[in-house]
Design a binder for these strands. Structure first.
Length: 664
DNA sequence: GCAATGAGCGTC
DNA sequence: ACGCTCATTGCT
């Protein structure tokens, strides 16, 4: 291999390293058709530091780009002249072979590029943190903990035995109401007692705090990783994990790539939460990544939550995972008593009235429970009156300026527009001329106001939006929360309001998502406490909640989706971009795939002109459907189509997303 | 017959 | 996004 002679006059001549002078580099370049390793020569002065996993800088197509050393080799297959790598940014081997293989698999699973996944998997460097002195003490092997409340599950102790024995048991976990953070902590500590690492992923900081506390409580050494730590502390903990100073890592979704040593167990809590999907290309989801990771590492997996997703039911149906759930007696002793807040008779007599007002039964139930402790009221929407309509003709109130939906932010406020923010003072119905509005969707603020009046003297606490309460004291209080923001407590009763708003959303997952939100709230109510659900009692999802039957509900949901040809019964991909760009991408995809659309995408939430005053070009979206067994082929086909587009230097990017959340 | 210019392609 | 190659153009 001939080293390129340095042409610069001031540059001195470089010599390749004596040993393994070739470095295969994963270059951080954004082009899909260049998504492969490139070989560089290692100059002799970098022979020792340019080791596998190290961050480097290389000259690539005339630019200085970041990269990672994948491996060192004696020779290169490349027939042209190799360039020298420019710089070793840091010899710290931050990209382990496991992470680089996993990132490649994730990129292939999602039709994306390695560079995009590596940006997620390896945090940005923080030089000062790398230089800090650190312990090189051998970690001490903890004792195996007691199974604790895993005894509630018939298959629980057996699962822990498998983890302790290093066997790759994989569980589709339907958690019983109770101390799930403690159960996760015990599973992770069991894994650590076998001297293997565990990765725990939860949706948000509130759940992470609980898992962290549970690990602490049983004395299991661990670190927590979350975005809100700040770059320095985050990198410090990530490095500690990489260096094998801890066996247990718990975190939010980016922790799915945490480089724990000797992975023995992956845990995912509440796998249906959309926070588990990373919002950057290629949009990987923690359930899929952890399943892939567990599979590759031959590690055990504990995936689930109170509710059950169709995806997890599919994993169980395919035999990849085994159900891990309570039997009926266990459910009866752990779950609250769920009832409908309106009777079928009330509902049949006047559905609109049943939906609109606070049920009498609810007020009675709350009053009684408030003597025993806090009560939880779940309200699907934030704000005051989130959607309003004409008082007379019931037409939705729209913004005179842009046609967006109007709302009220307080009792004595003027309506404003949710899209453009315009104040609609002096609003009058364009259809009938009436100047007053009525509530269509009541927000948490208004509910808090109403309940505060109904129960004078009882403290009212709001949790939602930007102010989420971690926990509330076990004292009588009305706790009003939006879904996912419920503070932790042992509530005396629960009220799930406005099921109509949740169930009525026109998305594929509306019903499954409603069940998940309800179960997450209802599981906070004491065993035997009352939960009232304010929704059409005839709906199967309401009946499933009343029976506390998430698995049965999910089986039915999966069957429905199979019939309709929807995920996870099939693999689906979405391609979005300008009309020309999407058309050119689709022309590069095998015509054997079924293509739905393209159709224009819905008007954005705020259709404001761009900074240059130009209206953004209309985008379209197409869906591509493939049989479930051809998911890998579909992803590869889309990867190839993107590569062909980028090779032809076609402008106008197309966003490709596999398993898109919003299908309708 | 050959320099000057620009489009197209590969990127180690 | 740079820089190399090669074809076309314009002028001798």
């Amino acid at each position: 291999m001939a080293a390129k002679k340095e042409t610069g006059k001031t540059e001195r001549t470089l010599f390749p390293a004596d040993v393994n002078p070739v470095a295969r580099i994963a270059v951080d370049n954004p082009l899909p058709h260049l998504d492969r390793p490139f070989d560089y020569l290692v100059p002799s002065r970098l022979g020792a530091t340019a080791r596998p996993g190290a961050r480097v800088k290389v000259r690539f197509a005339g630019q200085y780009l970041d990269g990672f050393v994948l491996e060192r080799a004696a020779e290169s297959e490349f027939t042209g002249e190799l360039a020298y790598l420019d710089k070793v940014v840091s010899p710290e081997p931050v990209l382990t072979p496991e992470t680089s293989d996993l990132a490649r698999a994730v990129a292939d699973r999602y039709g994306g590029t390695l560079a995009d996944v590596l940006r997620l998997a390896v945090p940005p460097r923080h030089a000062a943190i790398e230089k800090e002195p650190h312990e090189d003490l051998p970690r001490k092997r903890p004792d195996r903990p007691d199974p604790g409340s895993w005894k509630r599950y018939p298959a629980g102790p057996g699962f822990l035995d498998a983890v302790a024995g290093g066997r790759p048991a994989r569980a589709a976990w339907t958690a019983l109401p109770g101390d799930w953070p403690d159960e996760i902590a015990r599973a992770a500590a069991t894994c650590a007692s076998a001297d293997r690492g565990a990765v725990i992923v939860v949706p948000d900081g509130k759940d992470l705090a609980r898992v962290g506390a549970a690990l602490e409580a049983i004395g299991a050494g661990h670190v927590t990783l979350s975005a809100d730590l700040g770059p320095a502390e985050r990198y410090r903990r990530w490095l500690a994990t990489l260096r094998g100073e801890t066996l247990i890592v718990a975190g939010t979704r980016a922790a799915m790539f945490a480089p724990v040593r000797d992975l023995g167990l992956v845990v995912l809590w509440d796998d249906g939460d959309d926070l588990h999907t990373d919002p950057h290309a290629p949009y990987p989801n923690a359930r899929e990544v952890l399943a892939l990771r567990a599979h590759r590492a031959r590690a055990a997996a504990l995936l689930g939550g109170f509710a059950r997703t169709a995806e997890l039911t599919q994993l169980a149906a395919s035999g990849w995972a085994r159900p891990l759930e309570g039997d009926r007696p266990a459910v009866r002793s752990a779950a609250p008593v769920v009832r409908s807040a309106v009777t079928e008779a009330e509902f049949d007599r006047d559905p609109a009235a049943a939906a609109a007002r606070m049920p009498v039964l609810a007020l009675r139930t709350l009053r009684k429970a408030l003597a025993d402790g806090p009560v939880l009221v779940q309200v699907p929407r934030r704000g005051y009156l989130a959607v309003i309509a004409c008082v007379r003709c019931r037409a939705k109130a729209r913004c005179p300026a842009c046609g967006g939906p109007l709302r009220l932010t307080g009792a004595n406020e003027v309506p404003d527009c949710r899209w453009c923010g315009a104040i609609a003072g002096g609003w009058a119905c364009p259809d009938c001329g009436a100047a007053k509005v009525r509530a269509v969707v009541t927000g948490a603020d208004r509910t808090a106001e109403e309940l505060g009046r109904a129960f004078p003297g009882v403290p009212v606490r709001n949790s939602g939006g930007s102010s989420v309460l971690q926990a509330v004291p076990e004292q009588p209080a009305l706790v009003i929360a939006t879904p996912g923001a419920e503070p932790f407590a042992s509530y005396a009763a629960g009220l799930l309001l406005d099921g109509w708003a949740l169930l009525g959303r026109p998305t594929l997952r509306a019903v499954e998502e409603t069940m998940r939100r309800w179960m997450n709230a209802a599981a906070l109510i004491r065993p035997g406490g009352t939960v009232l659900v304010h929704a059409d009692p005839g709906q199967p999802v309401v009946q499933a909640l009343i029976r506390w039957d998430p698995a049965g509900f999910s089986a039915r949901e999966l069957a429905d989706r199979s019939e309709l040809g929807f995920p996870p019964a099939v693999r689906m991909a979405a391609a979005q971009g300008t009309s020309d760009a999407v058309a050119s991408l689709l022309s590069g995809v095998d015509s054997a795939y079924e293509i739905l659309g393209p159709v224009p995408v819905e008007s954005p939430e705020s259709p404001e002109p761009a900074a240059d005053g130009m209206l953004p070009e209309e985008e379209v979206r197409a869906l591509i459907r493939a049989p479930r067994t051809e998911g890998t082929a579909l992803a590869r086909a889309l990867q190839a189509a993107q590569a062909a587009r980028s090779l032809r230097k076609e402008g106008g990017g197309v966003r490709v997303q596999l398993d898109p959340a919003d299908l309708i």
